[in-house]
Simulated scan of single mutants.
Amino acid sequence: MRLGASAYLAHGPLAGPTFEAAAAAGATLAFTSLHIPEDSPSGARAAATALVSAAASSGLSVVADVSPNTARLLGDSPWDFLRSIGVARVRIDFGIPVPEILSIAAVMPIALNASTLRAADLAPFADLDVELIHNFYPREWTGLALPSVASSVAVARSFGWRVGAFIAGDSVRRGPLGEGLPTVEGHRTMPPLFQALELVDAGVDDVYVGDPALTDHSWSRLGSFVRDNVVVLDGTAATGVHPEVVEALAVPDRNRPDAAEAMIRLEHSRERFARLPLPEVGGQPRPAGSVTVQVASAGRYCGEVAIILRDLPADDRVALLGMVDVSLPSVGARSLTTRFR
């Protein structure tokens, strides 16, 4: 997965800090839109130049969203201008006819709209340097279903192209609505890491943060995934759990290859936890998001740690260690670690 950050002309002061944080998390891409109706043409060229320069300073390659409104913002010869300031690729959003798109593609690489175009629409561009990038959806309840994104991936693969999509931020959200900028509606209130995991599992190659800022915490969690392929799960320890157990939960492990339907069973946990000072009494409720361990009465299963994916009945052989976010998606065969507060 390639990771990208976004910045916009109306949020120019956020661009530098956002791009720096993104690059530290392993991002290599940046996104901006150059046809937002609320943006003023006054100073747009200078603002775009500064934004692209900030991205370049952080080592990010810029994709700029364009439409017929881009000429209103940037003036004559907008494509030559964008190439001259270092934009790597333009994404054709809407309203530009095929002959003009082909002429733009002669100037610089293009991306096409994965949310609205079908295979027949893409055929004229089959031999070009093209990527597909989905829309984001600023208004609540208007985003796509995740299966629609997966379908677009199949189309893209038939042309040999990459697919990009957006996740919503959890810090500054772009106006005028401030409801997040995800591609998938179900992601609008989900932690950024979990949004990215679901997109990658649907086959998406490039994940852009649509909003102009993320919390430092979320950049850190995305960075662990992008750089190290480790999913960090944040949670709260149950009362009385020994510090050695909490420390051991922070060691990366992975789901067993014979993955259970109801829980993630940490593959190497028994050998690491069986000799630790585990709780002596089990039988607590096990709602989705529980982190549990098998206690001594479980015999040879003592020490096995699990993350519960759906509500399960209490079991006297199983003790609660803490809770993690219940919106946890599938982690597949990835390494994961739990950080308890």
Rank of each mutant, 00 (worst) to 15 (best):
A54S: 15
T116D: 10
V63K: 00
F81H: 00
N69Q: 14
I96R: 02
W79E: 13
P97C: 06
R83T: 00
L73H: 08
A123F: 01
L122G: 10
L51M: 13
N113Q: 11
D129R: 06
W79P: 03
A54H: 13
L82I: 01
F94M: 09
R91Y: 05
E100F: 02
R118Q: 14
L82D: 00
A64N: 10
R91V: 07
E131R: 09
S115C: 09
P124M: 11
S61M: 11
I110F: 03
D93Q: 05
R89L: 08
D129Q: 08
A71S: 14
G86Q: 02
V63I: 15
L73Q: 08
D76A: 15
P97S: 12
F81Q: 00
T70P: 04
P109I: 09
V87Q: 00
I133P: 01
P109G: 11
L51R: 12
A111I: 07
G95C: 09
V98H: 06
S115M: 03
N69P: 00
V107I: 14
D80C: 00
D93G: 06
G86D: 04
T70I: 03
V87Y: 01
G86R: 01
V62W: 06
A114K: 10
E100Y: 03
P78V: 05
P124I: 07
L132P: 08
G86L: 02
P138G: 06
L102I: 10
L122N: 11
D93C: 07
Y137S: 00
R72F: 12
A56F: 03
E131K: 03
M108G: 03
A106I: 05
I110E: 02
L60S: 13
F136H: 10
V107A: 04
D93W: 04
A106Y: 08
P78E: 09
A105H: 09
A56R: 15
T70F: 02
D127S: 14
V90D: 00
S115W: 05
L73G: 07
A106P: 07
I96W: 05
R118P: 00
G86M: 02
D93K: 07
P99E: 13
S103M: 08
D93A: 06
D121Y: 04
I96C: 02
S58H: 14
R72I: 13
R83N: 00
D93E: 12
V66A: 08
P124E: 07
R72E: 11
N135M: 08
L102P: 09
A120G: 01
A106R: 15
P97W: 04
T116S: 13
G75P: 11
V52R: 05
D65S: 11
S53G: 14
M108R: 05
G95H: 11
V90S: 01
S103E: 15
L102R: 15
S77A: 15
F94S: 12
A123H: 08
D80L: 04
S58E: 12
A119S: 14
V98Y: 04
P78Q: 10
V66R: 05
A55F: 12
V87N: 01
V107K: 02
G59L: 12
L74W: 10
R72K: 14
S53V: 06
R91H: 08
V87K: 01
P109F: 10
L128V: 03
D129W: 02
